[in-house]
Design a protein around this nucleic acid. Structure first.
Lengths: 190, 190
DNA sequence: AACGATACGGAACGCGCGCCCCGGTTGTCA
DNA sequence: TGACAACCGGGGCGCGCGTTCCGTATCGTT
């Protein structure tokens, strides 16, 4: 039952694979060939498979870290004083954090992928944190009341996907964010 | 130089292929295997290739029709009396017209596909019509002034992609559209 | 230093899919 | 209705990619 420690070179290689995979997935999404990841890590394909039973498992490992980190950020924001500002900070965080990462969209939306085991849990954690922020902002009157977390996430995903078409276009990011922000604010009656 | 007319069965088969391809592409995007299209059309794969030199050419033919149709609708709207209403009608048209079609997103955004020959032309036609509607609405004070056609199209693509995740969810569509609409309206100063 | 256990690399396999080919069939025109 | 051209079907090829296998190299320990 107890795991013996990995050999030193095995640990090094595992880290190299994770680093290469993180970079490659962010840049090209899950579509990047595994051989390419191995090449960039300076390892053979077999080595990757000794550490991760499947390409999907490697992707899961990378995404778990990413999503958990995002959820942590969101939880921190949930303790801020101004609920409205905190919510919109969260929005920006999600948008800029994902706009240059093809992988997050694959992870959160890919029909098969998104509902697989550990990713689903992290996803729900993120939704929970987002829901908390949304609820506070709504109760404070800063955000329109007619939408829930899932609608918010859908909106966010779309925005992120759209921005990935012209990655690095800061002006585009600003405009898109502004429209989303203004659309989410509490609307005048009628 | 002059094209001889197709044989009767060839015409029938061509039509069957186009119909099957239109349905299949709309449902699954360009990822649908060509064999599957042939099967649904009740023909062999070879027949498809006799009418369209390449899978991409078939996709182009289908999309050309779709996009041209959309652009036509947009042009019609551009002659309406109320520029604001016309613009938001256009928005809804694009959203509901594409929300259940995986293919349009592939066609308008797929890096390689979108800039290939005839699709590009149709795309520009659509952008032109959209730009006309946007400009009128902005001059009439119905839409915020700080965005151009390309930003609008980006926004639209994102919205559509997001909605494709839960196809047929009318409530989600309504909420997302409402947020987009309110975000695009002329904003109060400051 | 030497030996067993552990890990490595990359060639090889299976599969899905775009595309081609060719023996057989069907439409057209005299 | 016969004969030729046009067209059809689906098996097969090549390629990319996920995954496996095994001979070789490296690590840890005595």
């Amino acid at each position: 039952m107890t795991e013996r420690p990995l050999r030193a070179d095995a640990q090094r290689n595992r880290a190299k694979v994770l680093a290469a995979a993180t970079a490659a997935f962010a840049l090209e999404g899950i579509a990047v060939p595994l051989d390419e990841i191995a090449r960039r890590a300076g390892v053979g394909a077999g080595t990757v498979y000794r550490h991760f039973p499947t390409k999907e498992a490697l992707f899961e490992a990378v995404m778990l870290d990413r999503v958990t980190r995002l959820a942590g950020h969101a939880k921190t924001l949930a303790t801020a004083e101004d609920p409205g500002a905190a919510f919109f900070d969260f929005l920006r965080l999600m948008i800029v954090g994902a706009a240059s990462s093809k992988d997050l969209v694959d992870a959160l939306l890919g029909a098969d992928l998104a509902n697989a085991g550990r990713i689903l849990a992290a996803k729900q954690q993120l939704q929970e944190a987002g829901g908390e922020l949304l609820g506070r902002a709504q109760r404070a009157g800063a955000v329109r009341g007619d939408l829930g977390v899932s609608e918010l996430m859908t909106l966010l995903s779309g925005t992120v996907m759209a921005l990935q078409q012209q990655p690095g276009d800061a002006h585009l990011t600003d405009v898109v964010f502004a429209v989303l922000r203004d659309g989410l604010r509490r609307q005048p009656a009628g």
